[in-house]
């Protein structure tokens, strides 16, 4: 149908026009489309794309919000990587934290969603709620500060002491040996969010007849079913879930601060997010903070690209 109306509307055929003429004409014919996306894209550009561009620009200056910036080229990067010991610690912590919470949250979401999918519908809805609730409940993660409280009234200390397993309470959230494992556990606890819901939905839309066909073809158990049918079928959801999980794993700064305060004891849970906040939010060293933001930005994009490559291998 469209073929006919198109030729009727357009007296000149595409062949007679250069590429630019054609594009311009198409743009004119679809003014309404551009008007409809303009409000979104103007705001999106100003507050999501522009900051990335600005960060890259600021990162080669000594901008501090007050004086006119001077271009210092790579001084900020040199200072960041060679002179800033705390930043090195932050990179290490961020990598440890993100490589555990990112894949951890992803696998947890996927496996739990798979298991939940085996349940009858009513129970499935309830279990979805139970697993999803911590991620939407604001700062409910602060309950872990009661659980790991450093005195005998803390739930874990008190219980262990009552059982005679402990004589003096352990300062869980002040001792660098315990802090990292605890913040990782709490972060995982709050991490079954968007990607988890995506998987719950993904499992439900897999074409049922595929399983029957596969059973005939000799798929024996649920593991084979998962690997050969379900996962390849829901690869789009898995990719989206991965993006969500990775992005999220770089955004747990507030959870860490809520649990162990800022700065954390011996900077043992100091991440790049904290470093960025420190220089940007408190010291207003925009140039230096932008440098940190640029590094963080490329870490996020890089890990996303890497994971996309890995996920391309599922079911093959």
């Amino acid at each position: 149908m469209s073929q006919k109306t198109e030729t009727a509307n357009r007296p000149v055929s595409r062949k007679d026009m250069t590429k630019w003429q054609w594009t311009l004409k198409e743009m004119k014919n679809n003014k309404a489309g551009y008007f409809m996306l303009a409000p979104f894209y103007i705001i999106f550009f100003v507050f999501t794309i522009l900051p990335v561009i600005l960060s890259i620009f600021f990162s080669i200056t000594d901008f501090n919000m007050l004086e006119t910036p001077n271009i210092v080229w790579f001084d900020n990067y040199i200072r960041l990587f060679l002179d800033d010991d705390i930043f090195m610690l932050a990179i290490k912590n961020t990598l440890v934290f993100a490589t555990i919470t990112g894949p951890g949250s992803y696998l947890l979401s996927l496996i739990m969603a798979w298991f939940i999918n085996e349940l009858p519908p009513k129970i499935r809805a309830l279990m979805t709620l139970i697993f999803y609730a911590p991620s939407i409940s604001g700062n409910v993660y602060l309950v872990w500060t009661y659980i790991f409280s450093a005195d005998a009234h803390g739930f874990i200390n008190g219980t262990l002491m009552d059982l005679g397993l402990l004589t003096t309470p352990i300062a869980f959230l002040k001792d660098p040996d315990y802090i990292m494992p605890i913040v990782i556990i709490v972060a995982l606890w709050t991490s079954l969010g968007t990607s988890f819901l995506t998987f719950i939905a993904g499992f439900q839309v897999v074409d049922r007849s595929l399983y029957e066909a596969a059973a005939v073809d000799g798929v024996k158990n649920r593991w084979q079913e998962l690997w050969y049918i379900t996962l390849p079928y829901m690869r789009p959801q898995m990719l989206f879930g991965a993006v969500m999980a990775i992005t999220q794993s770089f955004g747990f700064g507030a959870v860490i601060t809520g649990l162990v305060g800022y700065p954390s004891p011996d900077y043992c849970a100091h991440t790049i997010m904290h470093h960025l906040d420190d220089y940007g939010g408190s010291r207003f060293e925009m140039g230096y903070a932008s440098t940190i933001a640029v590094v963080l930005f490329f870490m996020m994009i890089g890990s996303n690209m890497l994971v996309r490559k890995i996920l391309g291998k599922v079911g093959k």
């Binding site: 900051p51 939010g281 925009m286």
Partner: peptide, 30 residues
Amino acid sequence: KFPGKNFLFQVVVYSLMFHSTVTAITNFYT
């Protein structure tokens, strides 16, 4: 259907890949 729509959508897809902590500080300036 209009020119540029795929590009505009791809930009949004890529922007899903970075967390808003990256943009927060520079946004203060904006």
